[in-house]
Design a protein around this nucleic acid. Structure first.
Lengths: 211, 211
DNA sequence: TTGTGTGAATCCCTTCACAGCG
DNA sequence: CGCTGTGAAGGGATTCACACAA
């Protein structure tokens, strides 16, 4: 079962999974690759090719069983379980992320929150006590954290990352607007809102030009 | 000057621009494609190829002048000006985005905020009054909004988008976890934090497998 | 000599087209 | 028939390699 698939394939698999959850909620029992494609903004062939990297989940002439394909996709994406997530940075973005219910609903539980602000350390957010970032290593070990959300200033991000990786964290979701370095075996996802707006700016600026 | 460049090229151009701003802050006057590549996590050839779509900005044997290339990139990305941005949704994510200073610093100014919550409408955020989402069209027209940040529930996103597009908005940054449809000529960027975590989940799950 | 700009080669992803199964 | 699964074809993007300019 191939694991060497592209970033874009993985992104699309997520989309398919989310579509399937919706479909299940609507009581739909079967989908074709064409249906899924439409919901995900892609093509039927693409859907089939994406899935083919991991197995054969459909029935020829019929399509895919929603419940079954959903289960398979959850397995493939590794979300058929809970993930313990740590959050570093209890500022604006950090608190917005913490209070966003979507993570928990999809199996990502924020089990520890860290910050350096003495005014925040000791506070409790829905049962999770904010600890001082100095205790990063203990917090990660005690809560079995496997992924870390970095919502700290750019200047602090690399140091926090390095320390977290040293105690076993292998997945980083970075909101700091800076290019971080990760050792091999560690995955990094960047979310940079300014860059998204710049992409819009580019599109709007060059819109209507050059045929 | 080619405008038909890939999403990834644009993303990298943003990265180069941000690196150049840093370099300028450090007082560096000249960079080579190799230097830029290292900062952006890419290759020297890639940097040169990316830039070549828009012109020749370097000097053979010397590299690029930081100040000049920065100016060119700002022009290319269309960020050599201010952009008027509207924000719909004054909840957790909306307020975090509003209070994030990075946007303004890069020329994206949030000039209007809209929400449906009567408890929020009428409040003032740093000089911007929160208006009721019913007044979307007027607000967009009055403030000359060209881009819209959607920080509303998934169920409301498409309707808000359609209304905004009807009054001329051509760029949408969407935080709602749903697949939106935009007419031709309108650009859409999605930010889906759950999907980012799922990408990490995939990587961690299949890490170390299959050589 | 150094490092850009760029055709050529390569690689990878998407799309096509159809055999095959229900 | 209808729709999947998949080799083959096609198209884009990255990498290579080198002519050229400072």
């Amino acid at each position: 079962m191939a694991r060497q698939v592209s970033e874009s394939t993985i992104r699309r698999l997520s989309l398919y999974l989310h579509s399937l959850e919706e479909l299940e909620g609507e009581g739909v029992e079967t989908v074709s690759s064409g249906d899924l494609a439409q919901r995900g903004g892609t093509t039927a062939a693409q859907v089939r090719k994406d899935l083919s990297h991991f197995g054969s989940f459909g029935k020829r002439g019929l399509g895919y069983e929603v419940a079954e394909l959903r289960k398979e996709l959850r397995e493939i994406l590794g979300v058929g379980r809970k993930w313990q997530v740590g959050l570093v940075g209890a500022g604006r973005i950090g608190s917005a992320l913490f209070e966003y219910g979507g993570f928990r609903r999809w199996g990502f539980e924020i089990v520890t929150v860290l910050d350096t602000d003495p005014g925040k350390v000791g506070q409790c957010w829905g049962g999770v006590e904010i600890r001082h970032a100095d205790e990063l290593e203990e917090a990660i070990r005690e809560a079995d954290v496997e992924m870390l959300i970095l919502a700290v200033p750019a200047s602090a991000a690399q140091e926090v990352l390095d320390r977290a990786v040293d105690v076993g964290v292998r997945g980083i979701l970075n909101f700091a607007p800076t290019q971080l370095r990760v050792p091999p075996g560690v995955s990094l996802q960047d979310v940079n809102m300014v860059m998204e707006l710049e992409a819009l700016s580019f599109a709007l600026t060059h819109d209507g030009e050059g045929g």
